[in-house]
Simulated scan of single mutants.
Amino acid sequence: MTKTKVAGTGLELAPGDKVGIIAGGGSLPVEVAAGLAGQGHPPFVILMEGEVDRESEFRPYEQESLALEDVGSLVPLLKRHGITHLVLAGEIKRRPRLINLRPSLGLVAVIPLVVMALARGDDGLLKILARGLEARGIKVVGAHEIIPDLVATDGELTKSVPSKSDWRDIEAGRAAAKAIGALDIGQAAVAVGGRVIALEGIEGTAGLLLRAKELRSHGRIAGKSRGVLVKCAKPGQELRADLPSIGPQTVDAAHAAGLAGIAVEAGHSLVLDGPATIARANALGLFIIGLPAAELAHES
């Protein structure tokens, strides 16, 4: 069987292959769907109930809604629609409570995976889910495999660049982000004046930046100017889902917190709405920089 490569990607599809998207919140699932459609592979979209915030943009595609509590019907749904490849894209803000999971024959098969995944944290959940789907004949692919242009590149992405003091913040923030990532807590940290002032928790990057803004407005970091948001993949992270990402809203929130810029891990982070994100940063005078995935080796 001859496979065709989706232009500009590493994804190869055979005749009859069909790509599904489990769509959460944010712009990522929208961009993935548009990317697939633009390459002649319109996706089947599974809208996660209560999570999707740009639902109208999925109207051109074949779709179905799924509640988190109906996770047991996911594999039958995928099989019913002939899905061969699946992308997990977008933010899922809550987890289903085991007591609320709706009984089904499919659930009986996957409940051990669900229990294990919930016990292991976010990245453990994603890894187990991916393995479980692939064991049932559905290949899980990353959003970055479909739209490589979303992946942050190494080096400066904006007109503004980090100063010497910003690099001290970048180094401190990166070390902290990797440390909490190893514990599967979060992917980001904010450093100001060479020290870490806030770590990402369950509230996500938006909540992290709001805390940084409040600390500055309350005078808790008085006398300290600038500062940097640093986002990195967790050590050993499942790279096919939940890669660190930034977008225009991240830039606005970083600016509101009084930060000088954003540093992300090149190759392992996504820049959503890329042109708009870079343009917004340039307009506000913030820098965005991609850090090499290897150990930081900047000469201060």
Results as ranks from 00 to 15, higher is better:
L129A: 15
D169W: 00
T84G: 01
F287H: 05
G186M: 02
R120N: 14
P15Q: 11
K164C: 03
L150V: 01
T277V: 06
L284H: 13
L284V: 10
T153V: 14
D273N: 12
G247L: 08
G38E: 04
R211E: 05
I111S: 14
A233I: 06
A294L: 09
E51T: 07
L113A: 15
G201Q: 00
E200D: 02
E55R: 15
R226K: 14
D122K: 15
G121Y: 13
I138N: 12
A212T: 01
R131F: 07
D273Y: 06
D166E: 13
F287S: 04
G90T: 02
H218P: 12
L133F: 03
E145N: 11
A175K: 12
P235E: 07
A14W: 01
A189Q: 09
E295T: 12
L286N: 00
D169N: 02
P96L: 14
A263F: 06
L125M: 14
L208G: 02
L183H: 12
A176H: 09
G219V: 13
Q63H: 13
K18F: 06
M48L: 15
A256L: 07
A117R: 14
D17K: 07
F287D: 00
I278W: 04
G106Y: 07
A293T: 15
E145C: 05
R120Y: 10
K178M: 14
K213A: 07
G106H: 10
V32H: 01
W167F: 14
K178P: 05
F287Y: 08
I197K: 02
P43I: 03
H85K: 13
A34S: 04
W167V: 07
T205A: 01
D242A: 14
V45R: 09
H298Y: 15
L291V: 04
V251C: 09
L36D: 00
E145T: 06
G207H: 01
L291E: 01
V75N: 09
I146F: 02
H41I: 05
R95P: 08
A119K: 13
S165N: 06
V115R: 12
P60E: 01
A130K: 10
A206K: 11
G223P: 03
N100G: 12
L105K: 09
R240S: 05
G82P: 05
R240T: 00
K234Y: 08
R168Y: 04
H85R: 11
A188W: 04
W167Y: 11
I289F: 06
K127Q: 15
T4V: 00
D122S: 09
E49H: 10
V75L: 12
D154W: 07
T250E: 01
V52Y: 09
L126H: 15
I221W: 04
A182Q: 15
D252H: 13
L47N: 05
P112C: 12
L36M: 05
V52D: 13
A182Y: 10
Q187C: 10
A188L: 04
G267T: 05
A189H: 07
L229P: 03
G72D: 02
L98V: 15
K139D: 06
L66T: 03
I46S: 04
D184K: 09
A266T: 00
R240G: 02
D17P: 05
N282E: 12
P103F: 13
L259E: 00
S163Q: 07
T205P: 00
A283S: 14
V251E: 01
G207C: 01
